[in-house]
Amino acid sequence: MADTHAPGLQHHFDSYEQQQEASFFGMWVFLATEVLFFGGLFCVYLIYRTANPVAFAAGSRELDILLGGINTAVLIGSSLTMALAVHAAQVGKHKMIAIWMALTGILGGTFLGIKAVEYSHKIHEGHFPGPHFVWHGPEVNVEMFFNIYFMMTGLHALHMIIGMGIMLVLIPLAWKGRFTPDSHNYIEGFGLYWHFVDIVWIFLFPLLYLLGVTSHV
């Protein structure tokens, strides 16, 4: 069965085109579930921030806009390198796929490193929610902001860690020339996932870091 088929084409597909369309469409449908997954969190954010505007502004002012801003730039950069990796796959430069993806991984690691620094500051200041949460200001319910901050950024970071794990598998395969212009669905599909994670951060950054700058309430 398989020997009558071209390399990289699974037996139940008729053509590379059908295989590729199926794989992209599958990835997009999966991303729709991801939209709703983070959507649940954004919904919680929306309701609680409406109910506790002062606490959210106060909590937000504790975050470091500089580090958050740098991380935004880093993540956008990693999206660029990922897009270039996909481009390399489309034009058939398989070593360049590996190089661009490795760069994407390094930028992703940088993001997580900076995130870890931020986390350790917050935990050190007693802002990790739970029994040991400390807040000296007059505002009430600031802990709720940090609940949501850690939940949202934590799940975002988890998505990045999963993404980097997948990259570790894909980079060696790319280097060995496993992906051709006809058959590189894994690279493109992974690219879609990575860009999605970037988009989530594009929303998290203003919602978590910037909301309290001018807030006088």
Binding site: A32, V35, G39, G40
Partner: peptide
């Protein structure tokens, strides 16, 4: 697909 996922977000 993109539009419907956003539409369902709006429902939520």
């Amino acid at each position: 697909t993109v539009v419907s996922s956003l539409f369902w977000l709006l429902i939520l």
